[in-house]
Simulated assay, not measured.
Amino acid sequence: MTLTVEDDASAHRTPATLADRLLDIKRIYHEPDITRFPRAVEVLERFPDAERIEVLSHQAIPGLYGNEGNVEDWVRIKRETLVLGEKKSLSARRNERSSDWIAPSTANGCAMACSYCYVPRRKGYANPITVFANIDKITGYLERHAARQGVKPEPNQCDPIDWVYDIGENSDCSVDAMVSANVRDLVDLFARIPNAKASFATKLVNRDLLSYDPRGGTRVRFSLMPADTSRLVDVRTSKIAERIAALDDFVEAGYEVHLNFSPVIVHEDWLADWAELLEQIADGTNERTRQQLAAEIIFLTHNEGLHDVNLGWHPKGEDLLWRPDLQQLKRSQSGQWNVRYKSPWKGRWVEQLTDLIGDKLPTCRVRYAF
């Protein structure tokens, strides 16, 4: 049986124990001459017993990506495999939803295995962590980019004052911080940039981050959903109760803390489950935390290809995620078939959930919902 954070009550005691539960790195694929980067050397020293395998590119690893047979080893690959590479193309992409900009990645992939995650769709039947070792080049780019923006001319739903940069679009920074110091470097960077802040969503409570000094420059968006649903689809993540219990601590440590209600998964009793969750948040946080809360709401989008992958390793989760009676097909920009909740129904469900938040957690501003 796969050992998960949810399976072991002791897993939350220290970050080191949590890292040991999630990661048992046995092989590291790396690009040629990767040790010219000090960050790569640090990561290799962190896992001294791992087999080192040189590859031409972190994006094309024979036998790992694009190998449908890897579905049966989905979780084992996440636990045992790490990739080291260089982020060669640096750009900040406009977003205007969760952030003003999507920062160039310092990592992608994840040791967790949420069955609805969109990242595996791009990587092909395997999704271990890839660490980009040229962190100095990435942070330098971000500092110059933020300087070019100047003062934010007017408030928007991302933030009333700062330009917001999402630093974790394709990974979970709480997990990344267990592998390298990239996340710490980013938090330090945005602590000193006067007109910008970092932002990332997470499903893992890594209390190591409480020792950082964000000084309000990093927004942590804790992803939350009803606990019963989470136990089925949030594989290898922190318990919902543990995430709620961490909210006050992260605010106290100097982070801005928001909530990421994502994905919202509809089933017959979904609204009652969400009412219970919102009450747990209200009861489990102090006034300071509640007053600064804001939330984004994202209803589930699933994918036909990912559905087929999940049937090979975690079919029970698909009972919730794949609901043809509630969903409609829509072709994505990449040409894949996605499924989303049927338009007339989804509009009513969005309204019901936002009304429920207003009733149960009235100080929590909804930044956007779709």
Results as ranks from 00 to 15, higher is better:
255 Y>G: 00
336 Q>I: 06
135 I>A: 06
214 P>S: 11
205 V>S: 01
168 G>M: 04
194 P>V: 13
352 Q>K: 14
60 A>H: 10
95 N>A: 11
75 V>A: 10
245 A>K: 04
365 R>M: 10
150 G>D: 11
231 R>M: 08
176 D>Q: 14
10 S>A: 11
161 I>N: 12
165 Y>P: 01
208 D>Y: 05
82 L>N: 00
283 D>G: 07
126 A>Q: 03
219 R>Y: 08
63 G>D: 06
254 G>N: 08
16 A>M: 08
359 D>A: 15
260 N>C: 12
199 S>R: 03
187 V>N: 00
228 D>M: 08
261 F>V: 03
11 A>H: 01
117 C>H: 04
322 W>Q: 09
326 L>N: 04
174 S>C: 13
37 F>P: 00
14 T>G: 04
81 T>N: 05
62 P>Y: 09
226 P>R: 01
232 L>D: 05
276 E>M: 09
82 L>A: 05
24 D>P: 05
336 Q>N: 14
350 V>C: 10
89 S>D: 12
71 V>C: 07
369 A>W: 02
263 P>N: 08
341 Y>D: 03
309 V>A: 05
249 D>E: 14
98 S>M: 12
68 E>D: 07
133 A>K: 00
17 T>H: 09
71 V>G: 05
130 T>Y: 02
335 G>P: 06
272 A>G: 09
22 L>N: 00
203 K>C: 00
363 T>Y: 11
24 D>C: 12
341 Y>H: 13
220 V>G: 00
124 G>E: 10
351 E>A: 15
276 E>H: 11
305 G>Q: 14
253 A>K: 04
190 F>Q: 01
292 Q>S: 13
252 E>P: 00
232 L>I: 15
245 A>W: 04
323 R>I: 06
63 G>P: 08
291 Q>A: 15
130 T>F: 03
278 L>R: 02
248 D>V: 01
111 A>S: 13
320 L>K: 07
113 A>N: 04
165 Y>M: 09
108 N>D: 13
137 K>G: 02
52 R>C: 07
35 T>S: 03
291 Q>M: 12
75 V>P: 00
168 G>T: 02
322 W>H: 14
4 T>G: 09
360 K>R: 15
338 N>G: 07
